[in-house]
Design a protein around this nucleic acid. Structure first.
Length: 723
DNA sequence: AGCACGCCGACT
DNA sequence: GTCGGCGTGCTC
């Protein structure tokens, strides 16, 4: 049979183009196909009609049309190609990222019918199982009362799968197409005046609108989301809810399930098997799920009846993918809402500067929830402890140890927060507060002990390491944020009889670990919790009377200009752990720089004011979000190979007016997993010339990488979140 | 990224 | 004599 048709197919290979194939019939755009590629057989997605100018002799034919599913929707393909264009990633790799694992392979996929059951008319006339078969009887009774999902059936009878199959074969059952438009919604708590006002404003729009829901910790943002979702479901439309991985807890999911008991919810969390994820994904795609709730990857779920998008904790760094296709789920979520002409709500207690800047420029609208939902819970009192010229034992001051001892005597739970993020060795003077700033730009210079010099990671300038403080002559210069390695042992030693529990990635890697930690804490078997980042968010601990931050300074002067923004955010969140119940909490922050404006804002709970300060700084320094950046990263076992690659591409193409290429400079984490990392920073006040430059540059990058050999790895990061 | 082809060292 | 090391080149 002659192959008269041609199609373009996107394949998961690191090549920028799509590939032209011959086909015996006109294949629909969005169809999944299997194609021969070299010696392999790969899965691909049809992106459009084939290139007619391609030489027929070189073309191969499509092998098979996979799946009996309908083709992927045009809106999904549009999202994939936008992502590929914006992040300068090969479209086939984006498509593979956007599909669930089960749909990435070249094997056809068969789907289970996941629709719930009810009794058919024959079933209603049939004899119920004997009363002594208790489980069978219970399952039958549940069916005769109404509709039953497979999960619900399994909860009633362990053998549900087998029984349902038998009864179905007997003709007693039928499938029900779910409709959530009239599904019941459980009553929620009464709204506060602020929540009601926020809701009224959010409901007042039609079509696309981007909102920042700016609410302090405990102000009840989730309740606002639930009410909006109820509106969306009542119109028969679907809601997409994006949540940081760490906040996507069973507690949160059961809160949604309890509010919408009969609405199918597709929860896309990390512990799903490939099959479960596929089912949830297809439920969303086929319009069977009313709510999709999940982490950044969920932004790619096709939703035919999308009516609302919510991004909770929109400032959270986990929305940015840090390898492969480096997309930002929050930004893509806003784009999706725009294309679907539906509202998007970005919620946060500490909004990102990107989002606040868009509020400032009028693109997003802001709604404030200024008070905690429980009138009795007030914001914690923050005290700044000046530790200059103090003797610190393992980073702990006497004041902090005394506070911990007093709390222990009163039987109260304290939290010692260790800020490990943003650590890079910036040199500082413990006497006068001098830090090693770069004389050519706004960045801090980083100590490179092996090279015995200071190096700027923004512009690349370097200087010898000073022997004494250039400002006051003190010879005892140290990297900021040093010396908190063995803090839990130190605590156990300095606070007699204190029961110290450490919480970090290691101690929580096992699944049962969290349950054990919760049990201990709730049973009052712990006096002091010690932990990093993980403790700042997501998990609710009761009656935290005191939060102590021992090394805030590590983020205060960092080579990464985003460090202060992140520090303020994490300190606000960890402070929010204190005093959530009836007792007002206290937060103690140790610092060598008590006069830093960050602390004044923290004490005053002035998130917005501090954000304005930071935005003003970014404007002066011409940094994001005022300007736009991309980073070309390279790593190799030998730094010279990475630098050689970056130098060879840096001058292949003259950047257009306004676009600046800086570097090569070392990455903030200059060495990782035995590889040395360096980068070029590309900056521009306008997005368009930046993207045009990256597009034109791409072939040069591919060519240079080929010349550089296999040991070199490289990637392009648009809107980087970390240096 | 895979996977082939291709040309040089230590083994049955 | 060959099994296998990973350099380089291509994939519609």
């Amino acid at each position: 049979m002659p192959s008269e048709y041609r199609v373009e197919v996107a394949l998961d290979v690191p090549l920028p183009a799509t590939f032209t194939y011959l086909a015996a019939a006109a294949l629909p755009v969005g169809a999944r196909v299997a194609v021969p590629f070299g010696t392999r057989r790969l899965a691909g997605v049809v992106t459009g009609p084939g290139d007619e100018s391609a030489d027929t002799a070189k073309l191969k034919a499509v092998d098979a049309l996979l799946d009996d599913l309908p083709p992927l929707p045009a809106s999904w393909l549009e999202l994939v190609s936008f992502t590929a264009a914006y992040y300068h990633a090969p479209i086939g790799q984006v498509a593979a990222t956007a599909l669930p694992t089960a749909l990435r392979g070249a094997a056809p996929v068969r789907l289970n019918d996941t629709r719930p059951w009810r009794l058919s008319s024959a079933g209603r006339l049939a004899e119920p199982p004997a009363a002594r078969a208790k489980a069978q009887r219970a399952l039958w009774q549940a069916l005769s009362c109404g509709v039953l999902s497979k999960d619900a059936a399994r909860a009633i009878a362990g053998q549900a799968g087998k029984l349902l199959a038998e009864w179905d074969a007997a003709g007693w059952l039928e499938r029900v197409d779910t409709c959530w438009r009239d599904a019941p919604v459980a009553a929620g708590p009464e709204l506060t005046a602020a929540q009601a006002a926020a809701l009224a404003e959010l409901r007042g729009t039609d079509g696309f609108a981007a909102w920042l829901l700016f609410g302090v910790t405990g102000s009840g943002k989730t309740e606002v989301y639930l009410r909006l979702i109820a509106d969306t479901l009542a119109e028969g439309r679907q809601a997409l809810v994006l949540i940081p991985e760490i906040n996507l807890t069973p507690q949160l999911l059961s809160r949604f399930a309890a509010r919408f008991p009969s609405t199918p919810i597709a929860a896309l969390h990390s512990s799903l098997s490939d099959g479960e994820r596929l089912n949830a994904w297809v439920d969303a795609w086929q319009g069977r799920a009313g709510i999709v709730i999940g982490t950044r990857l969920s932004v790619f779920t096709p939703l035919p009846r999308l009516g609302l998008v919510i991004v909770d904790e929109e400032h959270d760094a986990s929305f940015k993918q840090q390898d492969g296709v480096r997309y930002h789920a929050r930004d893509l979520a806003v784009w999706r809402a725009l294309k679907a002409r539906v509202p998007v709500v970005l919620g946060s207690a500490t909004p990102s500067l990107e989002t606040l800047y868009r509020v400032e420029t009028g693109r997003y609208r802001q709604i404030l929830l200024a008070e905690r939902a429980h009138a009795s819970a007030s914001l914690p009192a923050v005290r700044i402890l000046d530790v200059r010229r103090q003797r610190l034992a393992e980073g702990l001051s006497e004041m902090v140890v005394d506070a911990l001892k007093a709390a222990k005597r009163r039987g109260e739970l304290s939290l010692v927060f260790i800020n490990r993020r943003g650590f890079s060795p910036v040199l500082s003077c413990g006497d006068c507060g001098w830090t090693s700033g770069c004389r050519h730009c706004h960045a801090k210079m980083v100590l490179h002990l092996s090279e015995r010099r200071l190096r700027c990671h923004h512009c690349g300038a370097f200087e010898p390491v000073p022997h004494a403080c250039p400002s006051c002559g003190n010879v005892d210069l140290k990297p900021v944020g040093h010396g908190t390695q063995r803090i839990e042992e130190a605590l156990a030693r300095m606070v007699p009889d204190a029961r110290v529990l450490r919480i970090d990635r290691d101690s929580t890697s096992r699944k049962a670990a969290w349950d054990e930690i919760y049990r201990k804490v709730h049973a009052g078997e712990v006096d002091i919790l010690v932990g990093t980042q993980m403790l700042a968010k997501g998990h609710d601990f009761p009656a935290l009377s005191r939060v102590i931050v021992v090394n805030a300074d590590a983020g205060l002067y960092s080579a990464d200009y985003r460090a202060t923004e992140r520090l303020f955010s994490v300190l606000t969140q960890v402070a929010g752990r204190a005093g959530r119940a009836d007792a007002p909490g206290e937060v103690l922050v140790q610092t060598q720089w008590p006069d830093h404006p960050l602390f004044a804002a923290l004490v005053a709970h002035d998130t917005l004011g501090y954000a304005k300060t930071l935005l003003a700084e970014r404007r002066i320094a011409a940094l994001p979000p005022i300007t736009h950046q991309a980073i070309l990263r390279a790593d190799a076992p030998d730094i010279r190979d990475a630098n050689a690659f970056l130098e060879s591409v840096r001058d292949t193409l003259a950047p257009p007016k306004g676009v600046t290429v800086l570097g090569p400079v070392p990455a903030l984490m200059a060495r990782l997993a035995g590889r040395e990392r360096a980068q070029l920073i590309i900056e521009s006040p306008q997005r368009a010339p930046l993207h045009a430059f990256l597009d034109a540059w791409r072939p040069d990058l591919d060519a240079a990488a080929r010349r550089a050999g296999r040991s070199l790895r490289w990637s392009l990061d648009v809107d980087p979140q970390e240096l």
